[in-house]
Nucleic acid binder design. Structure first.
Lengths: 109, 109
DNA sequence: GTTTAATATTGCAATATTACGATAGTATTT
DNA sequence: AAATACTATCGTAATATTGCAATATTAAAC
């Protein structure tokens, strides 16, 4: 074996897992951080910001894009990446709900 | 190669990545969901809740514990698992901050 | 002390991820 | 059209993850 058994879990669980997995690498968290720090959708220079080879960064960007966390649009001979708010809102809402439920729990450990 | 280059990223980035990675599998999201749904720290029966073999569930629990998302305390001949609020609060705060920064961004795509 | 119940660990096979050099593609510039 | 700049993809090696059967561990119950 080795393949994840996604079919046994709910869509919501698979959804949160997919987004979490995409953020499960420091380089990808760093990319999100960088896209947040520049007040614009950035064309190019993400590669220069990260201590990784261009091919590796490209792969990380692809994963973030596949998970729906960022979008890229072609802008001349460069590509303009920016954060997809919807996905991050989904995460925010999930953890807000979790925190809320934790606060209501009577029996703590 | 193949090993993650954690040393090139900030502690905060590695921290969020570690927690995200731990939630990057539907079974582990399901475990968190289940621990939230029962208003108690559960001893046993997590295995029965999941469509996976006991050994596999045990492994997932170990990963959640290593990431600091859950804690387990021995309770007789069973083990009592419960959510570690601190880790989930950290995630909640991170995404709240991200959402806040997104809301302030002037230039959208 | 032996059985029983609940978890953990080990060992292994299948698959996925991470990283990078080399190369290809695409659009601008000259 | 050739050179340049930016990004994606391919190929490959190293490592990590997923899943489970089998086995170990641990503590209660008998």
């Amino acid at each position: 074996m080795g393949a994840t058994k996604t079919e046994h879990f709910t869509d919501k669980q698979n959804d949160i897992a997919t987004l979490s997995k995409a953020l499960g690498h420091p380089a990808r968290v760093a990319i999100i951080d960088y896209l947040l720090s520049v007040d614009a959708c950035i064309c190019g220079d993400i590669v220069n910001e990260l201590p990784l080879a261009q091919a590796t960064v490209s792969q990380h960007l692809k994963e973030l894009k596949n998970a729906g966390l960022i979008k890229g649009s072609i802008e001349g001979n460069a590509i303009c990446y920016c954060i997809d708010e919807k996905a991050l809102q989904k995460m925010q809402q999930y953890f807000a709900k979790v925190s809320d439920r934790l606060a209501r729990k009577k029996s703590k450990c």
